[in-house]
């Protein structure tokens, strides 16, 4: 790690003030990704503004047809919450499969989506469920929030307060992990909502994406078989040691069918 200052924010205003005072300051939520970047000397913040004390940002609440989850809610709490199991069991499955038990005990929803790692689980979850990101400045639809690899619509001095997940009629999430890191190789969230069917894919491309052809097919017939024959173009998909673009494209189909089956089970 390079040297930095550490400031534990006392409240949201304090965090924003610290962030505004120093262009090189960076927020730290759970730190499960950031710490590794720091240790590898891949990140060089001047100050870390720790959100760990902001308990007001942690919590899960059912609000009518939506589930509100605070930005500082740990993955383990999302995975274990009765409210999540009742409303969106697929979201509990997603949170329960992030990293490992220790990572889930520290890592947060806000930290994960602000980082927008192409191999993270939550982006598919938010986009697939048609969620809305609530910040200190505005509300951003998930479709507009994730803008590119490690990039989001967040402004420099904008802080995520939480995410509002509309409760779907049914949803399924399946992850095929990268064998070494256990990050997402390909994962798919499929949801049938009042507004229609959504299919969102993490891991396969540089950023989460939806598959309209699958959404149309499932809107007509919400069964795994409805996806047979739909091919995803490998062009532009990620290539690394663990998967070729062709394999990732193939897996999108396989995992999407399994996500539909999970939604139906």
């Amino acid at each position: 790690m390079y040297a930095f200052e550490f400031h534990r924010a006392s409240d949201i205003d304090d965090a924003l003030k610290q962030l505004g005072a120093d262009d090189e300051a960076q927020l730290i939520a759970g730190g499960q990704t950031l710490l590794q970047s720091l240790r590898q000397r891949l990140a060089m913040p001047s100050t870390l503004v720790d959100l760990g004390g902001l308990t007001e940002l942690a919590g899960i609440e059912r609000d009518g047809d939506a589930l509100n989850i605070g930005a500082m809610t740990r993955h383990a709490d999302v995975a274990g919450a009765a409210a999540v199991h009742d409303a969106i069991p697929a979201l509990a499955v997603l949170a329960g499969g992030i990293g490992d038990a220790q990572v889930r005990n520290m890592g947060t929803l806000g930290g994960s989506i602000a980082n927008n790692d192409p191999a993270a689980d939550y982006p598919a979850g938010l986009v697939g469920l048609g969620a809305t990101v609530v910040t200190t400045e505005r509300e951003i639809a998930a479709d507009d929030f994730f803008t590119g690899m490690f990039e989001t619509a967040l402004g420099e001095h904008e802080l995520i307060l939480g995410v509002r997940f509309p409760v779907p009629r049914r949803a399924g999430y399946v992850k095929f992990p990268q064998p070494a890191s256990r990050y997402v190789l390909v994962s798919v969230m499929v949801a049938e909502t009042d507004e229609g069917v959504r299919v969102a894919v993490s891991g396969a491309g540089p950023c989460v994406f939806r598959v309209p052809e699958m959404e149309r097919a499932l809107a007509a017939d919400f069964r795994p078989e409805a996806l047979d024959g739909i091919r995803v173009d490998p062009g532009g998909l990620n290539e690394d040691l663990h998967a070729t673009p062709e394999y990732r494209a193939h897996l999108v189909g396989v995992i999407a069918r399994r996500a539909v089956a999970a939604a139906l089970s």
Binding site: G31, R39, Q40, V103, N105, M106
Partner: peptide, 27 residues
């Protein structure tokens, strides 16, 4: 390790298992 995978550093922080290499002392 230096990437947060191996878990040799696991301790309990407020009653929950965490990887102590992936938590700053300040946190």
């Amino acid at each position: 390790c230096d990437t947060g995978q191996c878990g040799a550093c696991t301790v309990h922080l407020d009653g929950r298992a965490v990887k102590a290499c992936s938590v700053l002392a300040g946190q």
